[in-house]
C-alpha cells in the first residue's frame, strides 16, 4: 500500500469577502518531496500555505493533507514556521524549543510538563538542536532578549523537536543575514531528511531554491502558472513570473502568462 500524498488539492478555490485569492485546479505533493512556492507579492503563496495549515478554509474543493481533511489532522504532524506565530516571550530559548516536544509526552511526563519539568533526554535534545543552529550559548536566555534572527532559529529548533511529517515554512529566511540564512536552510532541509518527511516553503530569494526544493511551483494572480522539477527550471520562467503585467493588466486575462501544469513526478 502506498503512502497517501502529503498534499492533495482538487479544484480548490479560496475567496475572502467575494475576492478570489487562490485557485488550484489540482496539486499533488508526495511524501518526501521538498517543494518551493514562488511568485510576486499578493500572488496567493501565503494563502496556499495557510490553507494547508488549516488557518484559511477553502471556499470550494477538496483539501487533503497527509491523507486526511485538514481539520482532522493531529496538529503535531504539521509543523508551522510563519509570521504571526511567535516564541513565548518570557520562556527561555531552551523552554521554547521544548514546547515542540509537548505533544510527544505521555503519562507522568505529560503531567510534569505542566510545571515545565522535562525528561533529561529531551532537554539534551533541545540543547543539541540549539547548538546545531549556533545558539548553544543562548539556551538559557529569555526569548524576548534574543535578536530577530536568533528567534527564527529557535522557532526552527522547536520544529526539530516537534518532528512533524509535513513542514510548512512561509518565507523562513526573511530578515536573516547570509550565515543565518544558510543555517536555517540547512536545518529545514535536515527536518525533511528522514524518509517520508515533506517540506513546503514559500521562498522569495530564488538563490535558495536549490537548498530548499526539489520542485518549484510558480504562482501569480492567484493561479498556478507552472510546476517544475528544479533541474528543469529556467531563469526565464522566474523572470516572467515576477515581470509586471503590461498596461491595462487590471482587466487583462492572466492567460497572457504561460500556463502549464506539469505535474512533476518527484525526484
Amino acid at each position: 500500500m502506498s503512502a497517501p500524498d502529503a498534499v492533495l488539492l482538487d479544484d480548490v478555490r479560496v475567496e475572502v469577502a467575494g475576492r478570489a485569492l487562490l485557485h488550484v485546479p489540482r496539486l499533488e505533493v508526495r511524501q518526501g518531496e521538498r517543494v518551493a512556492v514562488v511568485g510576486p507579492n499578493g500572488a496567493g503563496k501565503s494563502t496556499l500555505l495557510r490553507l494547508l495549515a488549516g488557518l484559511v478554509d477553502a471556499t470550494a474543493g477538496d483539501v487533503r493533507v497527509l491523507g486526511r481533511p485538514v481539520h482532522e489532522l493531529a496538529r503535531h504532524e504539521v509543523g508551522l514556521l510563519m509570521q504571526g506565530l511567535h516564541l513565548v516571550p518570557r520562556l527561555s530559548a531552551r523552554e521554547n524549543v521544548l514546547v515542540g516536544a509537548l505533544a510527544r509526552l505521555r503519562g507522568i511526563d505529560a503531567w510534569r510538563s505542566w510545571l515545565r519539568l522535562y525528561p533529561g533526554a529531551l532537554v539534551r535534545e533541545a540543547d543539541g538542536a540549539l547548538a546545531s543552529l549556533g545558539l548553544a550559548d543562548r539556551a538559557g536566555m529569555r526569548a524576548d532578549r534574543l535578536s530577530g534572527g536568533e528567534r527564527q532559529k529557535v522557532a526552527v529548533a522547536r520544529l526539530q523537536l516537534q518532528g512533524p511529517r509535513l513542514v510548512l515554512a512561509d518565507e523562513p529566511t526573511s530578515a536573516l543575514d547570509p550565515s543565518a540564512t544558510r543555517q536555517v536552510c540547512d536545518a529545514l532541509r535536515a527536518l525533511a531528511e528522514p524518509a517520508g518527511r515533506t517540506l513546503v516553503s514559500v521562498v522569495h530569494d530564488t538563490e535558495l531554491l536549490p537548498l530548499l526544493a526539489t520542485r518549484v511551483i510558480g504562482i501569480a494572480g492567484g493561479e498556478l502558472q507552472w510546476d517544475l522539477p528544479i533541474e528543469a527550471l529556467e531563469p526565464g520562467r522566474l523572470e516572467a513570473l515576477y515581470r509586471p503585467k503590461s498596461a491595462g493588466s487590471g482587466t487583462g486575462p492572466r492567460a497572457s502568462l504561460p500556463v502549464r501544469l506539469a505535474m512533476a513526478s518527484g525526484t
Partner: peptide
C-alpha cells in the same frame, strides 16, 4: 501575545 499562544497550540500541545 496571542501569536505566542497560537504557536504553542500549533505544536499539538494539549
Amino acid at each position: 501575545d496571542m501569536g505566542a499562544i497560537d504557536a504553542v497550540r500549533a505544536t499539538g500541545a494539549s
